[in-house]
């Protein structure tokens, strides 16, 4: 594997990993059902806002 391929592979894995983690966190926090964490924040039950 070339150095270029290795760099791209790391970027791809990090990006995809980041996207999955973000989706899982959104889902677990219950803030959003569609993944965007913003569009439906007005319709959530008991949105907890930390100071």
């Amino acid at each position: 594997m070339s150095v270029g391929s290795a760099i791209v592979l790391v970027i791809v894995i990090a990006t995809i990993g980041g996207a999955i983690v973000s989706l899982v966190r959104s889902h677990r926090s219950g803030h959003c059902s569609c993944g965007c964490d913003g569009c439906c924040k007005n319709c959530q039950k008991n949105v907890e806002i930390k100071e």
């Binding site: 995809i16 989706l23 993944g35 965007c36 913003g38």
Partner: peptide, 20 residues
């Protein structure tokens, strides 16, 4: 900006994964 950010975040998460 709320709606715009929601759009960007969706593009960076669910749409990215679907595109892959």
């Amino acid at each position: 900006l709320d709606r715009g950010w929601a759009f960007v975040k969706k593009a960076g998460t669910i749409i990215l994964l679907a595109s892959v």
